[in-house]
Amino acid sequence: MSYDDIDAILTDAQKIPCTFDLEVPGLGFLDGNPGDEIKAGTRVDLPLWLAEMLSIGARLGTSRLVTLDLPSALSTRVMNALKADPRTVDLRSLAPHFYRLGVRILELFEEEEMVDILIETFRKRAAEIADHAHNPRGPLVEEVDFLRGLDETERQLFRVAHDSAKEVRVWAGEVKKK
């Protein structure tokens, strides 16, 4: 998670819903009224890095500019779906960097249960990814759907697993290289 980790930067660019607590002059462009002030109580989606900065007053004890809400990708509805069956949820459509977003959000919110759900989800899906990477069964419908729903972390995992399995097969002479 270094400074120029492209995935970390993309994670910070994902938007999360915020509510302004104060009236701020000149910030109206965020709400589509350039040059105007932004009213207290306006709800806008801001990138994570900006939202974090604006809400930082809350931690310092001064009055804060915005209140953060949970993004829809980590809403209770999604968490319930993950609890029911992690394998059928399309994480990619929720957020391309789902797990990293979860980690960032958990830095800002206290959500004990979400940690366990995320870990359990990753574990179950990782086992599934390993199966798919080692036994490519051809373009079955449910397999394609599952692989399309992988988030970036899981995609990297799939790629690593698939490549190493393939390299061993190439070495053993079972498949031709490339």
Binding site: V103, L118, A161, V168
Partner: peptide, 25 residues
């Protein structure tokens, strides 16, 4: 050798989720 990439990937991520996040809570 075949499993190294996958296993280290999984463990690394699990550590990242659990240790990093829970360290704050």
């Amino acid at each position: 050798g075949e499993m190294r990439g996958l296993v280290t990937g999984i463990v690394e991520n699990l550590r990242y989720f659990s240790g990093f996040v829970l360290g704050k809570i």
